[in-house]
Design a protein around this nucleic acid. Sequence first.
DNA 1: GCCGATTTGTCCGTATGTATC
DNA 2: CGATACATACGGACAAATCGG
Lengths: 241, 241
Amino acid sequence: MPKEKYAEIYKDLKRKIETEEYAFQELLPSENNLILTYDCSRNTIRRAVSALVADGYVQTMQGKGVRNIFQPTLRTSFTIGGIESFKESAIRNNQIPKTEVLCFTEITTDPKISNKTGFPVGSELYYLQRLHYLDDKALIINHNYFLKNVVTNLTKEIAENSIYEYFENILHIAIVTSKRIMTVEKMTEIDEKYLDLGDYNCLAVVSSQTYNSDGIMFEYTQSRHHPEYFRFQDNATRRTI
Amino acid sequence: MPKEKYAEIYKDLKRKIETEEYAFQELLPSENNLILTYDCSRNTIRRAVSALVADGYVQTMQGKGVRNIFQPTLRTSFTIGGIESFKESAIRNNQIPKTEVLCFTEITTDPKISNKTGFPVGSELYYLQRLHYLDDKALIINHNYFLKNVVTNLTKEIAENSIYEYFENILHIAIVTSKRIMTVEKMTEIDEKYLDLGDYNCLAVVSSQTYNSDGIMFEYTQSRHHPEYFRFQDNATRRTI
DNA sequence: GCCGATTTGTCCGTATGTATC
DNA sequence: CGATACATACGGACAAATCGG
């Protein structure tokens, strides 16, 4: 539960936008009015509004105001945005997740793996292949590489449940930054064997590097998604810089 | 040319990171030191650093410092990030762009188009199909829908060059927000006809809504990319909110 | 384990600039 | 032109996390 003022204001404004208390295309109250409403400083208001801009909810216009550009009808049901685990994402969409561990090994980073993952040569890693189901349909194959001296004592049983829960609740690893690259690739034999791709001969592939709170990259994952169930959302704002 | 202090500091720090004046995994100077270096307030430093965090260049750690997590070796040559036109992107990568206009018409938004694009029913639109080449290879088919009363007097000739240049230099339309959704779709007859897809039977599809500085959505575009040349980069940071 | 120094995070108030109406 | 709105910048205060002695 956030107790920061700007987070509370952000949540409240977000709710008012989502429930259409502020109508689409309407201007939000001015900063000075919001200062009175929430009894805080201007900086705090501006910070909350900045977060809404980043979400694509509003747009600021110097000299005019802050416009609501949130369109509820265009919201998607299966969003992969921000950093979210497969299980979190499934539960949020009321779907039943299941995970099957196809492979669980320990490896040492050689130059080829280093080049692919970004781990230094010689790093000790866990390497896993996992198959993710949603409502009994196989949708994603994950190839996970975890740094052993950060992700300590990983087991097959943990990998069958949620590795991210293990991170947060047991190891207390906070995930801070994730760098992702999305591409489309031809299916491999493994993809074809485990995913029911039908006519499709390619997949959506998300490669990601994940950093913990010490700024150490401790995970490299390649997620190979069934193309029919893949959707990636993004809001871009032109930087003034 | 930005004259804002925070933008100058951002640019300078970014350069120092890219040229490895600050080494990978090294801590940047503390905020108090940066204040002395750049002769400014703490807020200004914090703003510049925040932009670097958003870029995935650094990671802040309370009580410890700001760590450089930029890995130059992993930089990609063909990046589609932020809001960038096909031509801008091509030039940045030293490739020769060419655009062919396959179709140039004017339409009125019916319920079906409204549902697909997000324009209100009855809106007057330009509808274009354009084929984009890079170094003589057909890579992207764009389906553009532009609001006629914003994108005034569009012609086929303009569409063959750069529509974004026409926006900025002639119409003075500033692009502020862009909402994008990335999916993978099976190829259509049009895709097959114009793109040399080889064995691939699907494409990367980016659907985007673009807003001007008045908060008006004036463009809906579906970009259909040759899968071999598509790459989408993203940095996510866990929100404290 | 404690304490003090350092570092980032949150919050406030104020002043000035710039764009819009 | 004045009033209003957001944008930039400064300075100060305290909190929270980290680290070394």
